[in-house]
Amino acid sequence: MTSYDPQKIIDIHAHLHSDLPSDPALRVKALESLLVEQGLVDPAAIDAWIDLYAEEIGPKRGAHVVARAWTDPAFKAKLLADGTAAIREFDYQGHATGHLIAVENTDTVHNVVVCTLCSCYPFSLLGMSPGWYKAAEYRARVVREPRAVLKEFGVALGEEVEIRVWDSTSELRYLVVPQRPEGTDGLDAAALAALVTRNSMIGTDLLKARA
């Protein structure tokens, strides 16, 4: 015989319809509220980070740096020699990027970036990292078989092209300077920046001029 307990039904119903956040969301709230209360972290800094990195930056800053490198040989030389110093003039130097090394793709060298340990990434230039960048599959395979992984991203490279895989750390982040697409001679830096994709600056995309 099944029992019918009206109060129990009401409780279950109330629970299903309550706005109780998920377990991880509650854990984050617990941790954050404790740290804020003790003055260990500034809630405004947390909000500012979310506004900036999750919503505003995207890969736009990196694209701007790449377009500048394509159009200004002196800047490009500086960027490749000392990335950290070169991007200082853009005032992008977020605490999330650490030391920056720019690596240039050429007809004979293709660069690709990974963080084998966790997911270190030049946030201040590229915004948040894509989901696949955080995947164990990418972190393991791009080191072992970069050519195959790149092919899966549509980057088919001839055997003559050397692939260099750069492993990021918390102190050292990489920016790939992709090759400037053919047929873009008449474009200014702003139009060029619009052609630069996030993946091209990680190394998993080759750029084309837009038709």
Binding site: E32, W49, A54, A96, E137, F153
Partner: peptide
Amino acid sequence: PLKARDGEPAFAEPWQAQVIALAAAL
């Protein structure tokens, strides 16, 4: 599988952004 994940949003839920932001702020 990797390429198919290319269009995923960086964060599926707000708490995920909150964790990373809290770590960065600390």
